[in-house]
Amino acid sequence: MPREAGVPSGTLIMMVLQVLRNGPLHGYAIAQRIHLLSGDELRVEEGSLYPALQKLLMQGWVKAVWAVSESGRKVREYHLTVSGRKQCEAEVNEYERMAAAVKAVLKGAR
């Protein structure tokens, strides 16, 4: 049974950037994609997704444009900008480095 937890702290921005690398998505789709990719492990709440998206907008890492969803609704689609792509790479690299380090510690201490 999936636990359906919130996302680990500090990783939401990175994950949003990462899922946008494959093309623009609207808010609900971003949440869905993260949910799916995590194997139903992670659920992104509105209450944390939209502040994160506002932050991305403010940093200039994404751009928002109006579009029409598959279901025919008018939605805000978020596009990754060039600086957003760079930021994504930097964050992913940093995260992987940290994760490896944490893993090593856990393994060594076992």
């Binding site: 808010g27 609900y28 609704r73 008018k74 805000r76």
Partner: peptide
């Protein structure tokens, strides 16, 4: 923002 969020909720 409000429109995006309400679209989200409808979805």
């Amino acid at each position: 923002l409000a429109e995006a969020m309400s679209a989200h909720q409808e979805e």
